[in-house]
């Protein structure tokens, strides 16, 4: 055990700080480095999603009516529910961080579990939504069909199925990649849960909970934008 951790760079100095890595001067430096690292990583994530937002922006501008019609075919209540679910999960995450900070281990474990349950609920609802789209033949590809769907606010006009297909391509990509991030988040939280159960986190050392939480909140923020952009383009009758 000691041997393998040495190889992995975990030179543990048992007396002082069990979690202090060898190349840092002190725990503060290590903590600051980790949190800066996470923030910088989140900046790259902004640009990663940014590419899709860019495509979305252009096509929504070009094909507004078709996008409105396509957006209306999605169940906005499901989307709103999911938004609420994620917001609640963000609250439990922040409570988990607080619990770690104030040495409330049971609360920490509880909040991690609840967060993950919210995450799973989100994915479940998302899956149901995908299933609906599949049933309605709104998945882009050979069996795609979107004929005679009226454009909101323009009586007698119908959406161009090809342009609607671009909408659905973006819809599946954006929500799909977001869902992938949720799954990664669940992985991180599983690991945090294991560590929390082992009692690894103390008020002096809870950086992983903190930066795992940052990641979770970020994924939440992406959804906060996806919800109006994808579900609420043009809902009025």
């Amino acid at each position: 055990m000691a041997d393998s951790s040495t190889i992995m760079g975990l030179h543990q100095e048992e007396e002082h700080h069990p979690q202090l890595l060898h190349h840092f001067a002190d725990a503060g430096q290590q903590r600051d480095a980790a949190s800066l690292g996470m923030w910088v990583f989140l900046a790259t994530e902004v640009m990663f999603f940014g590419g899709m937002f860019c495509a979305y922006l252009i096509y929504r501008h070009w094909y507004f009516g078709d996008f409105g019609a396509a957006s209306k075919s999605i169940d906005a209540t499901l989307g709103a529910t999911n938004t609420a679910v994620l917001i609640c999960s963000s609250l439990t995450v922040v409570l988990a961080v607080w619990a770690a900070q104030t040495a409330r281990r049971a609360l920490l474990i509880g909040m991690l579990v609840v967060t993950m349950l919210f995450g799973l609920a989100f994915l479940g609802i998302k899956g149901y939504e995908y299933y609906q789209k599949f049933e309605e033949h709104h998945v882009p590809g050979a069996s795609f069909s979107f004929d005679h769907v009226p454009i909101p606010g323009h009586p007698g006009e119908y959406a161009n199925p090809r342009h609607a297909q671009i909408y659905f391509s973006l819809y599946f990509l954006m929500t799909g990649i977001h869902a992938l991030h949720m799954i990664v988040g669940l992985g991180i939280f599983t690991w945090l849960l294991v560590m929390a159960c082992k009692g690894r986190f103390t008020p002096e050392y809870y950086t992983p909970v903190e930066i795992g939480g940052l990641y979770w909140h970020f994924v939440d923020i992406i959804w906060i934008y996806l919800f109006p952009l994808l579900y609420l383009i043009d809902r009025h009758p």
Binding site: S90, L91, V93, V94, G213, L214, H217, I221, I224, Y225
Partner: peptide, 10 residues
């Protein structure tokens, strides 16, 4: 909403 999450939760 995003600002609130970033400022207070993050």
């Amino acid at each position: 909403k995003a600002t609130l999450v970033a400022l207070f939760f993050m």
